[in-house]
Amino acid sequence: MSAVTRGPGAVSGAPAPSRVLRWSILGVIGTLFAVPIIAMVEFTLRRGLEGGYDFSRWMLVLTGSLGPEYRVLGQAIGNSLVLAAATVALMIVLLVPTMILVHLKLPRWRRVLEFVCLLPISIPAIVLVVGLAPVYGVIARAAGSGVWSLAFAYGVLVLPFAYRAVQSNLDAIDAPTLTEAARSLGASWPVVIARVLLPNLRTGLLAGAFISVAVVLGEFTIASLLNRQNLQTALVIVQKDDPFIAVIVALLSLLFAFLLLLVIGWIGRAGVNRPRRTS
C-alpha cells in the first residue's frame, strides 16, 4: 500500500539473477497479467453476432457521441472529478498544516499522528460504511445528499497514502533549520509556510495529491453502499445495459490512472535526485 514513495532507490546488494532468468520470470508473469487486459480490448472490438472486429464502439466513446442513455456516465465522471478535487483540498487544508505543526512544534505527537493516519489501512471500507451510513444520514438532513459530502469519507480513505507521501518529503528536508533561518530573517509564520515550507514540500504534496486522485477515481465501496453516483458505480450500472461501453470506459480510466502513477514516480525520482538532500 506504500505505492507512492519509496526511499532513494538503492540498488540491492543481493546478487542479480542472470539476464535469461530475469526476462523469463518477467516474461511469464507479464504475459499472464496481460491476458485479462487483452481480453478486455478484444471484447470491446467484437462485432455482435456476425463475428469479426471493428473500432466502432471506441469511435463512439472517443468522439463523445454516445446516446442520452449514457448521460449518467458523464455525470458520474463529473462527480468523481469533483470528489477528487475536494478530497485533495481537504488533504491540503486539514492534513498538511497538521503534519507541519506536529513536525515542528509537537514532535512528541508524531507517533500518534502516524498511528491515526495509517489506521484506515486496518479498517476495511466495508466496515467503515456500516458506521458512515448513520453519519451521512445526519449530513443529508443538514446539508442535503449532494455527492460532494462523500469527500469527507474519501479524505479518510486517502489518509495513509497522503501521509506517507508528505511525511517522507518532510523527513528529507531539514524543516526546523529552514524555518529558523526564515524566522531569524524576519519572516512571519504565514510567509514561512507559503514561501519556504510549501515550495520545499511540492514533490510530496504532488505525489500525495495524485495518489489521492487515483484512489478516489477507483473508489466503489462507500459510494455504492451510500447510494451516491461516482465513476465506478456508474460503470456497474452501464455494464448491465451495454457491457462494451462500460469496458471501454474502464480501460480508459485504467490508462489514465497508469499515466497518473507514472507521473508520480517521475516526480518522486526528480525529488530524490535533487541536490538539496540533507542528513
Partner: peptide, 15 residues
Amino acid sequence: DAASGVLAQFGGVML
C-alpha cells in the same frame, strides 16, 4: 511501479 500501483489500488470494479 506504475502498473503495480494501478492494479493494486485501482482494481475493484475494473477487475
